[in-house]
Each structure stands twice: as C-alpha cells, then as structure tokens.
C-alpha cells in the first residue's frame, strides 16, 4: 500500500530527497573544511543555518526578500567570524587530540547555547519563502518550483565552492593547509588567516542552506541540532575531504531519508541514516570518493 503510493509519487519524492540532501551538503561542506584544516568537528554548524533563516524571516516583510536574504547570510557569516576570533582561535592553538577533544566540548557548548537562545527568543519565528508560481511540469510530471529552485541554487553554490577551492589562490592555500599544515607554513601561507576564511565561508554556506530550507519547506528555530547531526553524517559518508564526495553523499542520504520517512517515519529514518554511515565507514573508511579534493 505504502509502496504503491511511493511508486506513484517517486519522482517528486526523489526530487525532495535530492533537494534536502543538497541542503545538508551545504552545511556539511563547512564541517568538512573546518575538520580538514583544523581537526575540529564543529558541532554548532547547523545553528548558522537557523540563524540566517530566522534573521531573514524577521526582516522578510519589512525590507523585502532580497535584502532580507543578504542580511540573513551576513548575520551567520559575522557570527562565524566572531566565534572563530573569540572562542575557537584559542582552541586552534592546542595540538593533536587535545585540540579535537577540547574543540568537541567547545563547539557542543556553543551549539547548546545558540540552540537555547534561538528557540527561546524566536519561538514561532518560521521562515517560509514561497515563489509566486508554485508548480512546473517536466515531461508529464509536476514538480514544485520551490524544490527545483532550491536544488539548483544549492548545486550552483557547491559548484562555486569546488571551483573556488580548485582554481583560486586562496582556495589552493586552503587545500594546502588541509593536506600538510607544516608544508603550508613554510610556503608562507598564514594558517590562522586561512582558518578564519574557511570558518567564514562555512558559516555563509550554512546560512544560505537555512534560507534555502525556507524555500522548499519551513525553517524553524529548533532545527539546528538536527541539521548538524544530518550534516555530520553526510560529511562522514562523503569522506571528510572532498566537496564532490560531500555533494553525492548528501544526495544519497537525502533520498534515503525522505523515502524512509515517507514509508515509516522520522525517527526510523534517523536510525537508517546512522546505519548507512556506519556501513560506509566499515566498507570504505575514506568515504565515498576517498581522499580526493
């Protein structure tokens, strides 16, 4: 019965899964880059998405959509820069396992703090952006325009990031630091400035992801932790080093999540995702695309 329904709605569900997955990838690439460079798993990363979404939602009806989105992204970008300068800069001064462990507690603390603040102060502030045209028809199937739009924007942002890392001087310096920190220092690359840049880019992309979520579904203040966990899974499955690995992992996990969600329910889909991540680590410890970047 559920399966019949699934088959009839499959294209729409797959599109939803892809869109959701790409949105997670946008959060995940920030986690991946920060971990690749600094060996710190940023557990507060999903809160950047929520912050941008809330700021945009608050401003949407007063300053217009374009400005609201811009200010929303600036908000999380600034928060990223401040958090790095004030809190994480000192964590990055530590070395080895120390840094990873302290980083774990510091970012978990930040996540809880931001989560508490955002859910208490902005209860009921929900970001919903709906384009004037609701559906488009592609070869007989009807899709929601907002889904298509979300997917396209996410993809463009991810491709933009990948080419930034591949082609620009700063992008190459970012990869250099993640491949060999000492090698980067003796090339004259200022590592702590590069970390700041990565933090800011990561925060901006997560912020964009939150706003994109408001486009195809709703973004609510409490979703930060959930988004962080899902993005972490995407990061692990994608192999914590490559943007394309993260993108593909996001799409796969997004589809799995939406399909299981449709067939059974939300909490089971989390379990299924955790199992998928565990199986990936067992089969391919380097993640889907391994050590490429």
């Amino acid at each position: 019965m559920a399966v019949d329904l699934l088959i009839s709605q499959l294209p729409a569900i797959v599109i939803d899964g892809i869109v959701f997955g790409l949105q997670l990838s946008l959060i995940s690439v920030g986690i991946v880059m920060i971990f690749g460079l600094g060996r710190i798993l940023n557990l507060s990363h999903g809160e950047f998405a929520v912050l941008s979404g809330i700021v945009t939602a608050l401003l949407l009806h007063t300053v217009g959509i374009v400005l609201a989105i811009i200010i929303g992204i600036i908000a999380s970008t600034l928060l990223g820069a401040i958090l790095y300068k004030v809190v994480l800069f000192y964590t990055f001064k530590l070395h080895g396992e120390h840094r990873t462990l302290i980083g774990f507690f510091v970012t978990l603390g930040l996540a809880l703090l931001l989560h508490g603040y955002l859910t208490n102060q902005f209860t009921g502030t929900i970001l919903i952006i709906r384009p004037p045209i609701t559906t488009v028809s592609i070869s007989g199937y009807t899709f929601r325009l907002s889904s298509i739009l979300s997917g396209v924007i996410s993809t463009l942002l991810l491709i933009g990031l990948a080419s930034f890392l591949k082609r620009t001087k700063v992008g190459k310096a970012i990869r250099a630091v993640s491949q060999n920190e000492v090698g980067a220092i003796i090339s004259g690359i200022p590592v702590s400035k590069i970390l700041l840049i990565v933090f800011v880019i990561g925060a901006a992309l997560a912020g964009s992801s939150g706003i994109i979520r408001g486009l195809y579904t709703n973004l609510e203040p409490h979703q930060g932790i959930e988004l962080t966990i899902l993005a972490l899974l995407v990061a692990v499955v994608g192999g914590v080093r490559s943007v394309f690995g993260t993108m593909i992992a996001g799409i796969i996990l997004g589809i799995v999540y939406i399909v299981v969600n449709f067939l059974i329910g939300t909490y089971i889909s989390f379990v299924v995702l955790l199992i998928s991540a565990a199986v990936t680590i067992l089969i391919k410890p380097q993640g889907l695309l391994g050590d490429r970047d």
Partner: peptide, 22 residues
C-alpha cells in the same frame, strides 16, 4: 614562521612536507 618566508628565509625540511594530492 610564515612571515619569515616573506623576508627571504626558506626552509626545506627533511620530511619534505609537500602537498600529496596537488
């Protein structure tokens, strides 16, 4: 260290420290 490179001191370590995937 990175500023010393900018004034003309270059260190080539025994471990080479290259970027393997570049």
């Amino acid at each position: 260290a990175h500023k010393r490179v900018d004034i003309g001191i270059a260190y080539v370590p025994a471990e080479k420290e290259i970027f393997p995937r570049m």
